[in-house]
Computed example of a mutant assay.
Amino acid sequence: MDRPVTVGVDGSPSSRRALDWAADEAALHGRPLRIVHASVWERFEGATPAEDLPDGRTETAALQEIITNAESRARRRRPEVRAHAEVLPGQPVDVLVHAGEDAFALVVGHRAHSALMRHLSIGSTGSGVAARAWCPVVVVGDSAAEGSSADRQVILGVAEGTEAEAAHVSFALREAHARGCDLVAIHARSRRGMQETRHDSPGLGSSLAADALLSAAVPAEAALECDVIVHRRVVDGPAHHALLQATQHADLLVLGVRHRHGAIRRELRPTHHAALRHSPCPVALVGVPWPN
C-alpha cells in the first residue's frame, strides 16, 4: 500500500492551508491523502459528549463537520487524489505523531501566537509534531503564500556535518524534481569560520572548506540522477537570516533535524524555530542521523 500524505486538520484557517498544501503534495507524487482530526473527547469511552455547543451543535456534529468539510475541500481541489478523513482519539501532537509513522510526509499548520508565546515556544502543535515525528514533517505557516512561486525553487539548508545522501538532501532533491524546479543548497558560515577566512594566508581556506562541504552534501551524481539543477551558495552570517532571505520567493524550505539514537525528541535548534515562525513558504523538517 502506498504511504499516504497525512495532514492534521482542526477547522482553523491554518489547517485549511495545510490541507491545501497536502492535497497538492499528494497529487504531485501520486499518493493518497489521509486527513486526521484529533479529538480528546474520543478518548473517553470512545464517544463524544452530547451537550450542545454555544452555536447549538453537539460535539459529535462539530467533529463530523470538520472532517466532512476537510474531505470535500481536498476532493474539490484535487479530484484525482484518493482522500479519506477520520477522527482519532487523543491529544493532537500524540495523534499526529502516531499517524505519521507510516506517512510519506506529515503536514501540519502553524498558527502565529502572541509575542510572549512565541518567545516561550508555547502552544504550537506544529513545533510539537516536528520535534517528535520520525517521518518528514511539513509545517505550513500563516505567512505561507498560496501556490508556487514565480521563481520555483526549493531551498535546502546545509549544516556542518551533513552526510552525503542524507535523508533531508534526498527529500529536497525529490521535491525539486517533482516540481520541475531548481534546488538551492545554502550553507551559512559561522562567525568563527568568517574569522578564520580573514586570517588564512591566501584567505580562502574556510571558503574552500565550505564549498567542499556543500559539494559533499549534495553530490553532482545525485543531482544528475534526479535530473535537478543545483545551485550551491556559501553565505556569511547567521543561518536563519540567510535561509529566510532565500525563501522570499521559494516553494519550500528543507532543513535537517538531528535525532539521537533512542531519543524521543528531535533537536529543534534556533534556526528551525526561526524558520517555523517566519518563513514565507512551507518548511519541511527531515530527520538526519546523529553523528557517532
Rank of each mutant, 00 (worst) to 15 (best):
A47Q: 12
A47T: 13
T48I: 07
T48Q: 08
P49F: 02
P49Q: 08
A50W: 08
E51T: 14
E51H: 13
L53H: 05
L53F: 00
L53Q: 10
D55H: 04
E59G: 07
E59C: 11
T60A: 11
T60I: 09
A61M: 07
A61D: 12
A62Y: 02
A62D: 10
A62C: 05
L63H: 11
Q64G: 13
Q64I: 09
E65R: 11
E65W: 05
I67G: 04
I67V: 15
T68H: 10
T68E: 13
N69S: 15
N69A: 15
A70K: 01
A70Y: 00
A70W: 03
E71D: 13
A74K: 01
A74D: 00
R75S: 09
R75W: 03
R75P: 05
R76P: 01
R77D: 08
R78E: 14
R78N: 07
R78Y: 05
E80W: 08
V81G: 01
A83Q: 00
H84W: 07
H84M: 12
H84A: 12
A85Q: 03
A85F: 01
E86M: 07
E86W: 01
E86F: 00
E86Q: 13
V87P: 01
V87Q: 06
L88S: 08
P89H: 05
P89A: 15
Q91K: 11
P92R: 07
D94E: 15
V95H: 01
L96G: 03
V97T: 10
A99K: 05
A99Y: 02
E101C: 08
D102Y: 04
F104N: 06
A105V: 15
A105H: 04
L106P: 02
V108G: 02
V108P: 00
G109N: 05
H110F: 05
R111E: 11
R111N: 10
R111F: 06
A112N: 11
A115Y: 04
A115M: 05
M117R: 15
R118S: 15
